[in-house]
Amino acid sequence: MTGTSLRRLFASPVFWRGVASIVAFLVLWELGARSRQWMAPEFYAPFKELLVAMGFKKDYLPWIGAVPAPSAVLKSWLAVIGQAGYWQSWYMSFFRVMAGFVSAMLIGIPFGLALAVSRSAHGIGFPVFEVLRPIPPLAWVPASIIFWPTQELAISFVTFLGAFYTIVINVLGGARSIDMRYFQAAQSMGASRLDIFRRIILPGTLPSIVVGSAVGMGITWEVVVAAEMISGGGSQIGGTSGGGLGFFIWNSYVGGSYEQIVVGMISIGVAGYVSSELLRWLGYYVTPWLRVR
């Protein structure tokens, strides 16, 4: 980022409004979480019976009082940030997301294009696809643990399913919505079918591929975390702390380290954001004609 654009960023009220919003959120969270330290239990006396009846503990504010404070989360984060196990979790989850996502792209894009350009491919492939599509990826977890020889493959397969359907549907829709006039123009200029595919259908579908991948990537992160929790972290090579971020959260919960749960949650948020940014940048790079409007 150049100096001028940084200066412009700091001068914009939108930026400072965003900063103020995040700071206010953190302060409220901290106050709420510390309520048990600075609020006398007598404060709740009038609601005591009600709170107990609802199942809450009676010595701190309901809900927010049970959450670890951001300062405690930060401290816990600083503690794990030097541990190889924490980064191993990152690596495992990233690896699974990438394995599932890349294979979904490699299989989904050609499959979607085939459905779009060939009537017989559509006739054969689409009904099966439409029957399988409504099954949520997580419903596949037990079956895929049985089907695949290793847990690692099982988890990657489930993440693959998460992205696959979205990518195929987007590619199919994108290729179908290319304007008829482009085909007519290319045809009258003497283009072969292969040339029309390469220089009209492929670039014409590219924006939909980018959109489909971005949505698919989001679903992959949702799926991988749940799959890791359900399957108990996949391969146990890295010990209990090497099972991915989903397993990191689950393990922290079982171990009673509530700060670490939040550390895991935020880590997934960051990981998802980084992958989306990466994709957005890639999409921006491969569709130069869309950024010049």
Binding site: R181, Y182, Q184, T287
Partner: peptide, 10 residues
């Protein structure tokens, strides 16, 4: 054609 049929990606 009536409307432009230039390929937007070229």
């Amino acid at each position: 054609f009536q409307e432009t049929a230039l390929f937007p990606w070229m």
